[in-house]
């Protein structure tokens, strides 16, 4: 996974907390900065993609390693 500016570990948290935590973190970030989100919620695979798409914060990378899933999200304009 490429470089990131901020890492957020939402492991152990269930729906909708990974999305809500990501939202909160992204609110404090600057356009172009990258957030690496780690989660164990299997529902987050699709949820984070939907969140990224609907809020125009591109999901640059996603992979699963064991129980952990890693999302690289770029903070979009505004």
């Amino acid at each position: 996974m490429a470089d990131f500016d901020i890492e957020l570990d939402a492991s152990g948290l269930n729906c909708p907390l990974p999305v809500l935590k990501a939202r909160k973190e992204l609110n404090g970030m600057k356009t172009g900065q990258k957030l690496r989100l780690i989660a164990t919620d299997t529902g987050a695979d699709k949820d984070i993609a939907a969140f990224a798409k609907m809020t125009s914060n591109p999901l640059l990378d996603f992979y699963i390693d064991g129980e952990k899933r890693y999302f690289l999200i770029e903070k979009g304009a505004n």
Partner: peptide, 8 residues
């Protein structure tokens, strides 16, 4: 509601 708010 909380998720929808997070989605804008």
């Amino acid at each position: 509601a909380s998720t929808a708010a997070a989605l804008g």
